[in-house]
Simulated assay, not measured.
Amino acid sequence: MDLKAHIRGIPDFPKPGILFYDISTLLRHGPAWRAAMERLAAAIRPYRPQLLAGIESRGFLIAAPLALELGLGFIMLRKPRKLPGATVGLDYALEYGTDRIEMQADAVAPGQRVVLLDDLLATGGTMAAGVALLRQAGAEVPATAALIELSFLNGRQRLDVPCETLLRYDD
């Protein structure tokens, strides 16, 4: 199945000059969504994860059903002050400013193998921050994964672990 046929490009969103890769068209097509989850499961299974982590918010849509498919637990990496209880966080640089990502302090056990997922790998800043945060909490991060990679933004170069992606856009 051609999964790219189920990704809609929306020009000038969220601002002029940006082409937004909308996964909602994939999510609402049952057979394509199933195929995407099966392909991602096959791609990350060799890394032997014990837990999957998703980056807010579309990463949740990828990681949670994939964790179910693989019989694993799922944790959330979120924006500040969105999680209950004690949290750990990491500030990271964006192209224009900074951001912060947090997770519950007890979400991972030391040495636990966690694969980090998001819907899209662009510049790699958020994914790299997520890897760093998981490691700060004691996790081993053997790989990351995303549905879509915008390869022309070179985000993969910011990661020091493999990144599995299903769909690649080169320009």
Rank of each mutant, 00 (worst) to 15 (best):
L77G: 01
E56Y: 07
A5V: 08
L52A: 10
H29G: 06
H6G: 06
F13E: 10
Y21G: 04
L159P: 04
G54E: 10
T126V: 04
L70E: 11
I23G: 02
R158C: 13
A145S: 14
A139D: 04
S24H: 11
G97K: 08
D118Y: 05
R158P: 15
S151C: 07
G155I: 02
F60W: 07
Y92D: 11
V141L: 10
P31V: 13
A5M: 12
L19K: 14
D106A: 13
D160Q: 15
P80T: 06
L61C: 13
I75E: 10
G124T: 00
Q50E: 15
K4D: 00
D91V: 13
R28G: 01
A93Y: 04
L61F: 12
Q136I: 06
E38T: 13
L40W: 06
L3V: 02
G155N: 02
D12M: 06
R158A: 15
A93F: 02
H6A: 14
F152Q: 09
D118W: 05
L121C: 04
G130W: 09
D12Y: 09
I62P: 01
G130R: 04
G138E: 12
R48S: 14
P110T: 07
D12F: 00
R58F: 01
A43K: 06
P49Y: 03
Y96T: 03
L19N: 14
A43S: 05
A137D: 02
L167M: 14
L83K: 02
A107M: 08
T144V: 14
V88L: 15
A107K: 05
L120R: 04
R100Q: 11
L116C: 12
A36C: 15
A32Q: 10
F60M: 09
L66M: 08
I75R: 03
A107I: 02
T25K: 09
E95H: 04
P16W: 08
H29Y: 07
F60V: 07
E164P: 00
G111R: 09
V131S: 02
A139Y: 07
K15D: 12
K4Q: 13
G125R: 09
L51N: 10
I62C: 08
A53N: 06
A132D: 15
V141N: 09
L27C: 06
L83P: 04
I44D: 12
A41I: 07
F13A: 02
L134N: 02
M127T: 11
L120Y: 03
L120V: 13
N154T: 12
L51R: 15
I101G: 01
A64H: 11
F20M: 03
L153D: 07
Q50W: 11
D106K: 12
L26P: 08
D99K: 01
Q136C: 06
Y92G: 10
A105Y: 09
L153P: 05
I23D: 03
